[in-house]
Each structure stands twice: as structure tokens, then as C-alpha cells.
Design a binder for these strands. Structure first.
Lengths: 191, 191
DNA sequence: TGCTAAAGTGAATATTTATTCGCTTATATT
DNA sequence: AATATAAGCGAATAAATATTCACTTTAGCA
């Protein structure tokens, strides 16, 4: 073999795409835009991805995996539930804040014609650990014993909206604001 | 004057657009698709809207106004706060459920290049009554005295996510599930 | 009822955008 | 160092899409 594909380039392409989608929406970006933003030639995109569809699907999958992996960083099941939950909640919040563009990208994708059913299905499976977490809270009788899907809906819904609001309002997310938001969330869940 | 523009046609165009966007995303629709779905000729679209941009902006504004108007239907300020809040919460929920496509459309728009700053600004102003509502709850000491923007973030975030989840999971939103969801929400807000 | 101005049409055109391709450059292997 | 092979390039091409336009139909008004 001779010259190998460059993993860094994939990262460049992904970053450029995510950035542009957050700014202009999925409908507003072209392969030309992406290549320009990534600092490579348009043709090079096709060395790494067969088509725009494939690029978007691959990026979607990568973003999903990223965000799940980050969530459980530092989670220790032996510590009290509320502490662990808080840790994960903060992990997600921090990640989404620092990667706002990724969050927007994922949202945009959900209703786009780019994402295939298979990609969507895979994304769903990734949520399993969060269901487990809710179940633990319920077993310890700290969390309301209602459908865990509903609980997660609440946790993620507030998180996403908080990120969005923070970004658009320009109100910085101070430590005390974060604590307040967490308290709202916890009060909703707690048994 | 002779032949007048038909208000019904605007409705047709809007309905078609909303339907298609919910199915294929903003990026997946063309003027051709819209005209076909609306049952009119492509050229006719340009009788009603100067461009695709203008169409999307007009539709966005219309959707926003719709959803706000519906929210306060039947709200009586003299009745107890929680009842009123519940009424509004249910109004929004019902409306969003029945008009899921509109919800998706609005979401997609927020990060699209179609929506102009002016359109966005107008949307923000429409939220004023909701801020008033939160303030009332706080004055009566029924609601936590934290930034009302944060409270609304919570209320709307959970609502949107609930709608989304309901639609995709296929789990029907039974009366008891609705009550549970409301309780989660109220527990978060209550002082 | 006939006239007229605007709505309505959809094929033609202009524009935008994805994708390809002939070429150049870089780098693993010998 | 020579070579072979794939990455990288960006102008050229193909495909998709917005917009226009010459024409037909419709409906208000005399």
C-alpha cells in the first residue's frame, strides 16, 4: 500500500459540517461549503465519503456515540444514586454546551431525509444505559416509579432546551444557574 | 379589480409545506414538492410568495402565532393558579399533539438559513404572556422564585420532548400518562 | 353577456449544487 | 532513489431545483 487515508481529515470534515449545520441548518449547506470550511478540495470529500448522504449518516452516528460515551465518564455505581445522576447530568450538560453545534446537528438530522432507518435504530440502542440508570433510582425508591421513558424524556428535554436557551439568549450559564436547573430536574424525578 | 387571491390557497400551501417538512425535513423539500402536495401549479406558488424564503418565513410566523393563541384558550385569571397553569399546559400539549408537524417545522426552522432575524425577534415577543404567567405563580408563592426564563425552559423543553417521544415511540398518550407528565412538571416548578 | 385584470398553469430557463474525472502530489515500499 | 499507488485537487459535467414567462382560465364589474 502507499498513501493512506487520513483520520485527521475525517475529523476536519466532520467539524466543518457540524459547524456549518449549526449556523445554516441542514438545508443550508453544500458539499462546496463543507470542503471550503474544512480546507480541502471538493473532490477530496468523495475520497472519504461516497455521497453527501453517507457523510451525514456517518457524522450522525459519530455524534451519537460521542455524546453517550462522555455521559458516563467518572460514573461510579457504588456511590449514592443522586451523586451519580448529578455527575452524569453535568457531564451531558457540559458536553452539550461545549459542543453546541453537535447538539443542533443531531436535532436537525432527526427529521431530515438523510438519516436512514438503520442509523436511527442504532441511535436508539445507545440510550440503553440511561434506562438502566433510571431503573436503579427507582429500585432505591429515590425516583418516582413511573415509566422510565417518561422520566428520560423529562431529563433530556430540559437539558436540550436549556442548552438552546443559553446559546440564544446569551445569558451565561453560571454555576448557580446550573444548580437551579438541576434542582428543577431532580424535583421532577424524585419520589 | 377582478380576480382575487384566495386565502384558502395560502392555507393549502402552508399545510402542504408543514406536512412535507415534518416528513422530510427542511432540506428535503422543493417548491415542486410543495406545489404538488398542495395540488396547484409550481408557478402559482409565486403568485402568493415572492420566493421560497418568503414562504418559509411567512409560514413560520403563522405557526408561532397559532400556537400562542391556542395556549390561553379558556384561561381565567381569577381561578386558582395551578388550575390555570394546568389548563394552559394541556392546551399546548393537545395542540402540539394534534399539530405535530407544525412543531417539527418550527424546530427545523430555528437553525435554518430561511428564518430572518426579524422573524425570530417577533417570535420572542410572542412569549411574553408565558413570562407573565410564571410571574403570577411566583407572586402567589406557588412557584419557585428562580429566573422565569429557566422555568419556561423547563416547561417547554419537557413538553416538546414529550411530544416527540410520543410520536416516535408510538406509545399512545393516555390520560394517566398525561397526568403523570403534568405532575412531573409541576413538581419541578412548585415552591 | 362581454370585457378585463388578476389568478392559475406548467414547460422553459436560470441557477445552484452534487458528483465525476483527468491530472498532480505525496508517501509507503522496494 | 525509484516506483507505484492512493490521496488530493478543482475545473468540468450532470443533476436537481428555483424562478420566470407566454399562455389559459376565472371571476368581478359594466
Amino acid at each position: 500500500m502507499v498513501k493512506l487515508k487520513d483520520d485527521k481529515k475525517v475529523t476536519q470534515i466532520f467539524q466543518a459540517t457540524v459547524k456549518l449545520v449549526a449556523r445554516k441548518g441542514l438545508s443550508g449547506i453544500t458539499m462546496g461549503d463543507i470542503s471550503k470550511e474544512a480546507g480541502i478540495a471538493t473532490g477530496t470529500l468523495y475520497v472519504y465519503f461516497k455521497s453527501k448522504d453517507e457523510l451525514i449518516n456517518a457524522l450522525f452516528a459519530a455524534c451519537r456515540e460521542n455524546s453517550v460515551q462522555v455521559s458516563f465518564k467518572g460514573y461510579q455505581p457504588n456511590r449514592p444514586f443522586k451523586l451519580g445522576f448529578r455527575q452524569i447530568w453535568l457531564n451531558i450538560l457540559r458536553y452539550k454546551l461545549q459542543n453546541f453545534e453537535e447538539t443542533v446537528f443531531l436535532e436537525q438530522c432527526y427529521h431530515s431525509p438523510f438519516i436512514t432507518a438503520a442509523t436511527r435504530e442504532k441511535a436508539l440502542q445507545l440510550a440503553a444505559p440511561f434506562y438502566e440508570l433510571m431503573k436503579r433510582g427507582q429500585q432505591e425508591q429515590l425516583v418516582k416509579s413511573v415509566d422510565s421513558g417518561l422520566l428520560l424524556t423529562f431529563v433530556m428535554g430540559t437539558m436540550n432546551e436549556l442548552i438552546r436557551q443559553t446559546h440564544y439568549s446569551g445569558i451565561p450559564l453560571s454555576r448557580s444557574r446550573i444548580n437551579t436547573a438541576f434542582d428543577l430536574c431532580w424535583d421532577a424525578l424524585k419520589a
